[in-house]
Design a protein around this nucleic acid. Structure first.
Lengths: 237, 237
DNA sequence: ATGCTTTGCTTACATCGTAAGCACGGTTAC
DNA sequence: GTAACCGTGCTTACGATGTAAGCAAAGCAT
């Protein structure tokens, strides 16, 4: 082992290598990648440090705690929404187009980060009414303005906001769960035969297992989203 | 400290007391209570053991691991649904009544166990298509039979099942989140001023904060549930 | 009595999050 | 020059966690 005093490379660098210098954003991104690869449960400060060629404690220079690290990862992932060119913070073609784009943008986000998404959905927000999956004051403001500008009353806009959030959480959470089967805190290497289903006493289940496993999520998402928009539209009168 | 060899009470009991004997169900129930009182994050084998006047390792006689303990708690909580007299496993007054009762039963369950419910929602299921919050083959079978008996095609029944699950997860998860603000793995003793919202740049938010915090969850749940049932009904033709 | 099974306890270990402080190099002030 | 500082990452250390392994006592069957 090399002593800490002597640098591997002769230049001034601390530990001779092309290590690009630590900073908070780099840590958060590495964290998101790590979670996507190994699951939240596997993410420890030590392991994330190792991923960045750095000791665990060095991370604490930029991240106050593991909890804050997870919050930061969630935030940085949700912030990707701002750079989605298909999603407008300011409505351009009416509220329905706005909601459609927002919903699809979030679905894309969930599909891109299936392991992180449950965190987006379940981490406490800054205020109880800043709901997942938007999680940011700016989006809530944007949403409410889009709706009130379109003629919704304040009450209706707020109700629409809650209905929209619930819709997204339910659909996307179950969709990513079906994807990885590892939603939430577990990381089971083997499917564990005791958890394998025994369908002997459930004839209808047996018959419909094919249909149940079939992935029609995109169509169903769109259909349900359409129904939601219709429902909101009918309140506009 | 008393030696381990000498019993406190003279009778044959291992540690002289009226400790009612350990068994798996007792552990699971104590776990559910503990989570409701202190949150999932605080639940450790040692602390749960202490709650039952027992060493941590004694629990392993009945529960293979902490993960399995959580699964067991979830399962035992969900099983309460069977003893809800308002909910019928076999439909009695048509599919709409069946779904209404089921949805309301689950909502009651969520309200009764707001801390456990996120686990119900996010723990991996025995098969990817056994969705939360039902989580049991028996309920899925019951659901599908109710729908197909009512005239839904197999495809429609499966689609209804997914729509219904998504609806419940979304609504109930956000509802319990608003309740405890401690959904998921965090346990923050203090609201931490850095996480307190600053509404300066969000005028509409400021104006609507009252409405946003207002609790109309029951009405909104019922309204959305009604819309869902209507949507399903319209597919019956 | 003898042995088997059930139950709970004890000990031990690797791993975790993180508090505290150190060592190095770069920067700035004289 | 050199002296004070500061930003960065490393080291050490502590208490808590999940759990493997084995022990001891009690109940039961023979």
């Amino acid at each position: 082992m090399a002593e800490s005093g002597t640098s591997v490379s002769p230049d001034g660098d601390h530990s001779g290598g092309d290590r690009p210098r630590l900073d908070r954003q780099r840590i958060l991104e590495a964290g998101a990648v790590f979670i996507e690869e190994h699951g939240v449960r596997q993410l420890s400060m030590r392991r994330l440090g190792a991923e960045l060629d750095v000791e665990a404690m060095s991370l604490y220079r930029y991240v106050p705690s593991r909890e804050d690290l997870l919050d930061g990862i969630v935030e940085s992932v949700v912030d990707e929404l701002y750079s989605d060119p298909e999603v407008y913070v300011e409505p351009r073609h009416g509220w329905q187009d706005y909601l459609l784009r927002l919903a699809h943008g979030l679905r894309r986000l969930a599909m891109k980060h299936p392991q992180v998404f449950p965190l987006i959905a379940t981490r406490p927000a800054e205020a109880p009414w800043v709901r997942p999956p938007l999680r940011s004051l700016r989006w809530v403001e944007s949403f409410l303005r889009a709706m009130t500008n379109a003629g919704f009353s304040n009450e209706q806009a707020v109700e629409a906001y809650r209905a929209f959030s619930s819709f997204l959480i339910g659909n996307l959470l179950l969709e990513v769960a079906a994807l990885g089967a590892d939603i939430g805190p577990v990381e089971d290497p083997e499917p564990s035969p005791s958890r394998r289903a025994d369908l002997t006493n459930y004839p209808l289940l047996q018959e419909l297992q094919g249909l149940l496993s079939e992935d029609r999520s995109k169509q169903e998402f769109d259909a349900a989203l359409d129904a939601l928009l219709d429902r909101l539209d009918s309140q506009l009168t």
